[in-house]
């Protein structure tokens, strides 16, 4: 039943309030340019030329996540994001409760695929944060698997510090960005 209302809400928000109440993830596109710069000679310098060609366009599907503020805070299933302490992938008791509720839901609804998206705040190097996001999403994945969710149904992705929720540069912003989003 919960799932039904979730789908209904997604459809409603997707049609009427996209980008407002829901945070919308747009499909990615890629354009590759080519450029040529010749090396330089001893006395006569050679110039540079470039030509641009768009290629390799790829548009992925759209994923819509419901902002947790619009959800029932007492229902852990209504929370799709769990938060972490700085440089930590340990789940807080609250996060544990949310993750376990989703794990239960997924085990009772086999066949559903879930994506666990790990994120980090901007402190520390980008590559370290990519690994930290990976470790966070994996920490959630471990609980899912321990509670019986099929490993094949789980996909983990880390975006490191590249997709912050809050653009601020203080602890209140950082605490929102250290997260795993549970997407299904």
């Amino acid at each position: 039943m919960q799932r039904f209302w979730t789908i209904l809400l997604v459809l409603f928000l997707g049609v009427t309030l996209a980008g407002c109440a829901a945070s919308k993830k747009k499909g990615g596109t890629v354009e590759v340019e080519d450029a040529t710069i010749d090396g330089s000679g001893a006395d006569v310098t050679t110039g540079a030329s470039a030509s641009g060609v768009d290629s390799d366009d790829a548009t992925a599907g759209e994923i819509i996540i419901i902002d947790q503020n619009d959800s029932d805070v007492d229902d852990p299933l209504g929370q799709r994001v769990v938060y972490f302490d700085f440089d930590s992938s340990n789940l807080t008791p609250e996060a544990q409760r949310v993750v376990e509720a989703h794990a239960q839901y997924l085990t009772s609804n086999p066949g559903m695929a879930v994506v666990l998206e790990g994120h980090a705040d901007e402190r520390g190097t980008r590559e370290y944060n990519l690994a930290l996001g990976e470790r966070r999403s994996n920490a959630v994945s471990q609980i899912f698997q321990a509670m019986g969710v099929a490993p094949d149904a789980i996909r983990t992705i880390s975006y490191g510090e590249e997709r912050p929720i809050s653009m601020g540069q203080d602890e209140s912003a950082w605490s929102l960005n250290r997260r795993v989003e549970i997407l299904y």
Binding site: K25, G28, T29, V30, E31, E33, G61, V115, L130, E162
Partner: peptide
């Protein structure tokens, strides 16, 4: 290179300056 909503990071030049290795994402999946 230009991408939309697909982060690009960690460019690294080949020693001869002809190629770049970098990190990106092919899609949202």
């Amino acid at each position: 290179l230009k991408t939309t909503n697909l982060p690009v990071l960690s460019p690294a030049w080949s020693p001869n300056g002809q190629r770049l290795a970098y990190v990106s994402f092919s899609d949202n999946q």
